[in-house]
Design a protein around this nucleic acid. Structure first.
Lengths: 249, 249
DNA sequence: CGCGCGTTTGACATGACTCAAATGCTGTGG
DNA sequence: CCACAGCATTTGAGTCATGTCAAACGCGCG
C-alpha cells in the first residue's frame, strides 16, 4: 500500500512531462525503437542535450519542404507523417509514411536541401536533432553513428523491397503487402496487428502504391467482399492475415 | 629527359599494381569517388589494411545471394553489377546497377543476410570490406562513419527518386530518365556523357524500370526514330540531351 | 444542419503486357 | 575460320489491368 502511494506521484509526473514533451530519452516510451538504443546512460544524457522536443504539428502541416535547407533530422514522437517527392511538372509520389520512433529526412543528410517534403497526417509531435550537433556528438560516440547507420540501412532495405512492390506487383498484391507492412509496424509499437487506423487518406495510399484512388477503393471493397478485411472508414481490421500474406505475391 | 626516364618505371609499376589489384586506396584512380574521401593519410593506411582487393568476377557470376550471411561490403573497382530482389513466387526486381566507386550491399548492414543478390554484368573486380572491421575502425575514425552515412544517404535519396519513376512515369519518361542518370554517372567518372556502353541487357533495363522487354525495345526505336539517341547494340549515343531532359517528366 | 471533400461505384479508354514470330548477334565446337 | 545453336532484340497483333472521366454517396467539419 505504501508502495502504491509512493509510486503514484511519480507516474503522474511522468505523464505530465510526456505530455509537455520534456521527457528524457531515457524515460521515453519509444526508447526501444528509437536512436538511443545501445547507448550508455552517460551518452544518453549527452544525446538528450541536443534533442529538441518540438511543438505539435496539426494535420496537413508541413514538417519540411523539398527546397528548404537541410539542417535537422526528425524522429516522430507521436502521430504520423508522409513524405513526398515531385517531378518538375508537378506530379507527386508519396515516398513513405512515418510512425513514432521512425526517422524522417534521412535521405537528405548528404546534401544541402531536403529533396522531399514531409507533412503531418494528424496531430503529431516530433523530436528534432540538429544534424551538425549529431555529427559532433557522433565523433565522441561511435555507437550513435552505428545506430544511425542501422537506421539508414533499414530504410534502404525497406525501399528496395518497395521497388519490388512498385515494379512487379498487381494492385491486389500491392494493397495486401501494404496492409501487412503497416500491421507489422503497429505490432512492433505494441498496438494491435489486426486492427488499426489508417491515418492517411485512400488517395495517399493509392499514390504511394502507384495506383489510382479508384483502384485502391475497388481493391478495398474486393478484399472486404472476400472476407479478408473489414473497413469502417479509416479503421481496418485484418480478418485473415494468412490469406492476405498469400496474396502478397 | 632524365625526368621522363625516371617516371616511366613508376608509371609501369602503378599500372602493374593496378592490374594486380594491389594498389593502395591512396593511389587508386577512384579515390575521388570512393569511401576514403576526407580521410587523412594515416587513416587511409588503416583503411587499406582492411580492404581486400578481391579477384575478378566474370559476367553473370554472383557477388552475393539474398540468403547468404552478410559479412562484407563491396565497392565496385572495375566493371559493373546489378542487384535484384525477388518475391516468394519468383518474380524478380532489378533494384540497381553499380559502377566503379559505388557500394553494393549497403541495405544489408543492419541484418544477418543480404536480402538481395548481386551479379556481375561483365568482367569486373571489387574491393571487399569486412563489415566487422569497418565497424571497429569506425570507432577510431569518425570520418569513416560519416563517409558511410553519406553513401547510405545518397543511395537512399536515389531510391526515393526512383520510386517517383516507378510510380508515376510513363515508359518514355522512364527510359529518358534512366539514360540521363547513366549519362551523369559516367560523366562523373570521367567518361563521355554522350556516348556509353549499356553493360546490362535490355531485359535488365526493362525489369529495373518496371516495364516489359518489348516495351523498352519499342521506346528505344521510337527515341531513335525521333533522333534523340542513336543505338548500335549495347552502345548508345545521346544526340539531344536537352530534348531527353524535357521528356523526363 | 449543410457544405465540401473524400470515397465509392460505374462505364469506358488506353498504355503497357502477352503471345508469337522474325531477325540478329555471340560464343562454341567442328 | 566457319556454321550452327541458343539467346537477345525487334516487330506485330491482340488483350487486359489499370487509368480516366463522371456521378452518386456519405462522413466530418465548421
Amino acid at each position: 500500500m505504501s508502495q502504491t502511494s509512493n509510486i503514484q506521484p511519480l507516474i503522474e509526473d511522468l505523464a505530465k512531462r510526456e505530455q509537455e514533451q520534456q521527457i528524457a530519452c531515457e524515460d521515453c516510451s519509444l526508447y526501444r525503437l528509437c536512436l538511443p538504443l545501445g547507448l550508455h546512460r552517460d551518452d544518453l544524457l549527452l544525446l538528450d542535450e541536443i534533442v529538441m522536443r518540438s511543438g505539435n504539428y496539426q494535420a496537413k502541416q508541413s514538417l519540411f519542404t523539398a527546397t528548404e535547407a537541410f539542417s535537422t533530422l526528425f524522429v516522430v514522437r507521436s502521430g504520423s507523417f508522409k513524405t513526398m517527392i515531385s517531378t518538375s511538372n508537378g506530379r507527386e509520389q508519396v515516398t513513405g509514411f512515418y510512425f513514432p520512433g521512425e526517422f524522417v529526412g534521412l535521405e537528405a543528410l548528404h546534401m544541402p536541401s531536403y529533396q522531399s517534403s514531409a507533412v503531418a497526417l494528424e496531430t503529431s509531435s516530433i523530436c528534432a536533432l540538429p544534424y551538425q550537433k549529431v555529427q559532433a556528438l557522433g565523433e565522441k560516440l561511435p555507437r550513435l553513428q552505428s545506430q544511425l547507420l542501422n537506421r539508414l540501412s533499414k530504410e534502404l532495405a525497406g525501399d528496395k523491397n518497395f521497388m519490388l512492390l512498385l515494379g512487379k506487383k498487381t494492385s491486389e498484391e500491392k494493397l495486401a503487402t501494404y496492409l501487412l507492412s503497416l500491421s507489422k509496424r503497429f505490432e512492433l509499437r505494441g498496438f494491435s496487428a489486426k486492427q488499426f487506423v489508417l491515418t492517411m487518406s485512400r488517395s495517399d495510399i493509392a499514390n504511394h502504391l502507384g495506383l489510382a484512388v479508384e483502384t485502391i477503393s475497388r481493391v478495398f471493397t474486393k478484399f472486404q467482399d472476400d472476407g479478408l478485411i473489414k473497413t469502417e472508414g479509416k479503421v481496418v481490421s485484418l480478418a485473415e492475415i494468412e490469406r492476405l500474406q498469400a496474396l502478397c505475391g
